[in-house]
Nucleic acid binder design. Structure first.
Lengths: 207, 207
DNA sequence: TGTGTAAGCAAGTAACTACTTGCATCCCTC
DNA sequence: GAGGGATGCAAGTAGTTACTTGCTTACACA
């Protein structure tokens, strides 16, 4: 039962390098150190194998974002950093998947799980930030989330190809995007700004 | 000499749909309404044909951005809109190119021309904006440019796959990203804010 | 009217593709 | 030690791939 795992891992690697058409059963077998026939005995067909391999690579858990923001810059920065790292580690396979998706729409479901989850988490956090009255500017959480995630995604996909287009140093990029976003939202790192409701309470407290 | 053009166009279409490995000479010939042998007589090899086809698809001129900003919101929004439209029209071929690039690095040069140009134009504009003293916040032009372009790029690539993750309506997305960026930079649409140098002159003038 | 050039067509090459079959070998378990 | 399941190996199938060759047709130009 171990060869099964090795085959799936090998399939992931070869797929990331060469895409669906390029990852032939022979190449997968070579990479797995296994006879080509074993693949067909284990999975029935190349398509079934790739389906399993994709299911595995795309089921990942993201770093969580707190339900109640306390330090937006720190919390968002560390989320952004873990997200960009996730994308960078998988940039090859993500590129391949995005390119195959039109031809093989069944890949879409598993592949879109992570970005959907990330977007939902981020939107939820930004909405909480807004409700806390910490944002000086009006903004649409979905647009803001798409902006930050888009910047991170493009960086992870494009930096290898055009390093001079993206901010330096690479390790600070996620932080820089995050800070820029927080400025757009008018979020400072101090205590929540009073909302109209909170104002009375705040005044009473300070009196 | 006309069949040459039709072959190149067909090659672009088939490549956009199926990528390098999927765009077989037979399929290209069918799409061009031409005998397969003609391809080899005209271009010598499939690789040479694809090279020419890529050269053609990636040589595009972008909407210009003025050297001297006057109305940042209007100017940047219309630039963003033309950029996102450019990417949307070519999303299939861009996805394919990005996915093939690791395997065929020679594609990189022609494919990276447009985003490099766009980044340079945008950086130049944002730097001018800064020098004019119109930005209330300090910012790194390259980071800001990467952020806006990243948001636009991710939208153009990802909306088809996950429409609910991106801001609605689609036609306003570029504008929304642009506005968010301008807020991050602290740019208002009025006259340039005085810089320290300009302050004296401004005071003299107003006195 | 003759000539050159671009194209079509039919056929064929060698390599590769996913996938199958038959048989030998291993190791685990009863 | 016998049986069974997983694996390896050699061979083969039918289809596809890029690319070639030889011959024919069509049109343009002189």
């Amino acid at each position: 039962m171990d060869s099964r795992n090795e085959i799936i891992n090998a399939a992931c690697q070869v797929f990331a390098r060469l895409g669906f058409r390029g990852c032939t059963t022979r190449r997968i077998a070579d990479a797995a150190g296994v006879n080509e026939v074993t693949i067909f005995r284990q999975f029935g067909s190349k398509e079934a194998l790739i389906r399993e391999a994709m299911k595995r690579t795309h089921s990942v858990d993201l770093a969580p974002l707190p339900d109640v923001p306390t330090n937006p810059e720190r919390e968002l920065t560390s989320w952004s950093e873990s997200f960009i790292q996730h994308l960078r580690l998988r940039s090859s396979i993500i590129r391949k998947t995005m390119s195959e998706m039109e031809e093989r729409p069944e890949m879409c479901e598993s592949a879109s799980y992570v970005p959907r989850q990330a977007s939902a988490d981020l939107c939820h956090y930004l909405t909480a930030l807004k409700r806390q009255g910490r944002a000086a500017e009006k903004f649409d959480p979905k647009t803001a989330a798409a902006m930050l995630m888009g910047a991170i995604f493009a960086d992870a996909m494009g930096r290898g190809m055009m390093p001079d287009v993206y901010p330096q140093p690479e390790e600070k990029a996620a932080q820089m995007y995050t800070r820029l976003l927080l400025k757009a939202l008018g979020v400072e790192n101090g205590a929540p700004r009073p909302t109209t409701k909170q104002t009375k309470r705040a005044k009473q407290l300070s009196a």
